[in-house]
Amino acid sequence: MRLVVGYLATPSGEDGLALGAQLARSLGAQLDICMVLPPDRTVPARVPAETGFDDILASRAQRWLNEAKSSVPSDIDVDVHLSFHESFAQGILDEVTRLDAHAIVVGAAGDGLLGRHSVGSVSTELLHSAHVPLCLAPRGHRHSSAKKIREVTCALGTRVGADVLLRTAVRTSKRMETPLRLVSLVELDPHHHLRDHRDTSESVRERAVAHAQSTLDEAKSALPEDFPVSVMIADGSSVESAVRKLDWQDGDLVMVGSSRLAQPRRLFLGSTAAKMLRVLPVPMVVVPKQEFPNSE
């Protein structure tokens, strides 16, 4: 198994690298640190004519990559890769294909709140085009003291694709040997557009409990009898308030599915996941709506 970290020599890049190391150690995976540079368009006047600007930029980038590699703990297999492409996101996707990687890891944009997610242009492009799971590190994750993933939380809905997410979460928890927590988020806003006019807060919650129980039963059937799996209902006036009611600890990881509008084997962040992302203090993994060939 290989994990690609889309790396920049910035605090955001360090956040993604820290998450990549936690995931690699937990999964027994190799870490591939990838940096993508834009191809040379205009050469600065101070660069000697006989010296290629690409060469100078590549040399500096290679130093950054070597420094990043040296910061990864010695118990993790790691390699570095440098490529040129007009689009950082597409360059990373090309590396995923070339390396036959299983997931992409990136840090939050630099303007987010500490301990929160901020989706920048690169993350947005990857969310619309990646064919493998995308792991998003919140801002400041480089300060995490967790060596491995402590618990996997799977946020399940009732729409098509939840079965793929569940199988991916179960497979991930088994490989990491971590507890699995199944969560059903219940938005109790009386004006929510998905609610029937006859609904009450209690009827909505009852349906959520029934759904959570069925997903728990399905998850248990795929796990050893003694595998630690729990189920929880989180309700609130909004998705954000429901998420805030959940207990989060350093080393936790959330897995969500792609929007039903996403193309097959592609990502797209749905409205519920986007709302979760605003308040989550832990990393989020977005899973494609259909499984991909190298998912094992």
Score class of each variant (00 low, 15 high):
Leu8Pro: 01
Gly16Thr: 11
Gly16Ser: 08
Ala18Val: 12
Ala21Gly: 15
Gln22Ser: 11
Ala24Phe: 08
Pro48Tyr: 01
Ile56Val: 14
Ala68Asn: 07
Lys69Pro: 00
Ser70His: 12
Val72Ala: 05
Val80Thr: 15
Phe84Gln: 09
Gln90Asp: 13
Val96Lys: 04
Thr97Leu: 09
Leu99Ile: 13
Ala101Ser: 14
Gly107Trp: 00
Ala108His: 07
Leu113Tyr: 00
Gly115Asn: 07
His117Val: 10
Ser118Gly: 01
Val119Asn: 03
Ser121Cys: 00
Ser121Asn: 05
Ser123Asn: 13
Thr124Asp: 15
Thr124Pro: 01
Ala137Thr: 13
Gly140Phe: 10
Ile149Lys: 02
Ile149Thr: 14
Val152Cys: 03
Gly157Asn: 09
Gly161Ser: 05
Leu165Arg: 06
Leu165Pro: 11
Leu166Ser: 02
Thr168His: 10
Val170Asp: 07
Lys174Glu: 11
Arg175Asn: 12
Met176Glu: 04
Met176Ile: 12
Thr178Ala: 15
Glu187Cys: 14
Pro190Asp: 07
Val204Pro: 03
Arg207Pro: 11
Arg207Asp: 14
Ala208Leu: 02
Val209Arg: 15
Leu216Thr: 09
Asp217Leu: 12
Ser221Ile: 05
Leu223Ala: 05
Glu225Ile: 08
Ser230Pro: 05
Ser230His: 04
Val239Asp: 01
Ser241Phe: 00
Ala242Gly: 01
Asp250Lys: 07
Met255Trp: 00
Arg260Lys: 08
Arg265Lys: 11
Phe268Ala: 10
Leu269Arg: 03
Gly270Arg: 09
Ala274Thr: 09
Leu277Glu: 10
Val287Gln: 09
Gln290Leu: 13
Phe292Glu: 12
Asn294Asp: 13
Ser295Trp: 07
Glu296Gly: 14
